Amino acid sequence: MSVSIDIAGLRPERIAVVPSPLAELGMALHALSEPAHHPGLQGWVTGVTARLDPHLADRMCEADFLWRTTFSDLFMPFAGAPGGGTLPGATLAEDLDLLDKLSDEQFADAALEFTCALPYSTGGASVLADAEMRRRALDLAAARGPQQLRFSERLLADPPRIRAWLRQFAQDCDEAFFAEAWSRLRHQLAADARHKTELLRRRGLGEALAAVSAAVSLDEATGRITVDKLGDGRTATGDGGLLLLPTSLGRPHLMVLHRHGWQPVLHYPVGSPELSPPASVELLTLRMTALAHPMRMRLCRHLARSAYTTGELAQTHGVTAPEISRHLGVLKKAGLITTRRRGRYVLYQLDVAVVARLGSEFLEGILR
């Protein structure tokens, strides 16, 4: 399983290493929503949360599926610009201006891609134009509760209103906590971008990708980048470019934007905070035995990001609901997942705090 980027014919000048303030804001929101994913940021998360205005905290929950369940491509609007060569802005305001340039169809499709059961890397009708896609999106939103459903309904009914809401929300986050963080982080990101750019110039793309992560490799003979992930996907640079985007807040996530028709982006972490020590040998043996099955490992990739129903997981993996239930039962017996009922839905989610104690390699494998 991997995500591949076909770079056949890609000219060296179309490869750029550059930070994005908006992408880093999205990662900051993710870390605040899922602190268990980022043990090295516990102090920062605690400090921001303690002084966060309650009204802003409520708004942060209103559309948290944009940065909690998945990392929405809305935080990389430059990738959706025509021509495939647009770079991120130097400031958050410039990145937000690029977000404003996305079409309503691009905005809605990216905003509603918060579940593992919607198409991503293939073309198709927009959720704004296709009645069946709209129905499916609302049904999936309903599984996540009334708040997500209300937000999705508002988006489908009036995209400009939600676009204005998101821009104002980003500006308020900037004033509340992000401007201070960005003033600190941008120097590290700029230094990393300079280093990778110099590697590109002197030693080529293969060396630069090796410096990004050991999970990223380049086959120069076939002109293909492969990112080792517990998931499948493919994209191509075509006539466009390739962006390498560093993040100071992203570890352990190594993400690839491979949305159909968008410029490919490799979003990689800098820095190496340590994870907590492993569990006892007895407990580790019990839990690793439960995780040894390939299908259960693939399920964990989704359950680490959000809670899903049996039906969603069955549809995504192409197996029956009873088979998914059996695998979920094994994981639950090992104490690796939690369940909660939301109306007629039962949602399953991985207990990330428990899995973190299995060791950094496994955790990074299912989250990157």
Rank of each mutant, 00 (worst) to 15 (best):
H30I: 01
L32E: 02
L32I: 11
S33D: 12
P35Y: 06
H37Y: 01
H38A: 06
P39R: 03
G40F: 11
G40E: 08
L41A: 02
Q42M: 05
W44L: 14
V45H: 07
V45A: 07
V45F: 11
G47V: 04
G47Q: 10
T49M: 08
A50D: 07
R51W: 00
R51K: 13
D53C: 14
D53N: 15
D53T: 07
P54L: 06
P54D: 02
H55G: 00
D58V: 09
M60H: 11
C61D: 06
E62V: 09
A63W: 10
D64H: 11
F65M: 13
F65I: 03
L66Q: 08
L66M: 11
W67M: 02
W67N: 04
R68W: 01
T69C: 13
T70R: 15
T70C: 06
T70I: 15
T70Q: 14
F71A: 04
F71E: 07
F75N: 03
M76Y: 02
P77Q: 06
F78N: 02
A79I: 05
P82M: 02
P82H: 03
G84L: 08
G85Y: 01
P88V: 02
A90P: 00
A90Q: 09
T91C: 01
T91E: 05
A93R: 03
E94M: 08
E94R: 10
D95W: 05
D95E: 06
L96K: 12
L96T: 08
D100P: 05
K101E: 04
L102N: 05
S103V: 08
S103T: 15
S103N: 13
E105N: 06
Q106E: 05
A108W: 08
A108R: 09
A108K: 10
A111S: 14
L112R: 03
F114I: 11
T115D: 07
A117T: 09
A117H: 13
P119Y: 05
Y120K: 13
S121I: 00
S121H: 09
G124S: 07
A125S: 15
A125K: 06
A125N: 07
V127R: 14
L128I: 10
A129M: 01
M133P: 00
R136S: 01
D139Q: 15
L140V: 06
L140F: 08
A143C: 13
A143D: 07
A143S: 10
A143G: 02
G145T: 12
G145W: 11
G145A: 07
P146I: 11
P146T: 15
Q148S: 11
L149F: 14
F151A: 15
E153L: 14
R154E: 14
R154H: 04
L155V: 12
L155M: 09
L155I: 12
L155W: 03
L155S: 07
L156Q: 10
L156D: 06
A157Q: 09
D158V: 09
P159Y: 07
P159E: 03
P159Q: 03
P160Y: 05
W165V: 09
R167A: 12
R167L: 08
Q168E: 15
Q168F: 07
F169H: 14
A170F: 14
A170T: 12
A170H: 06
Q171Y: 01
D172V: 07
C173N: 00
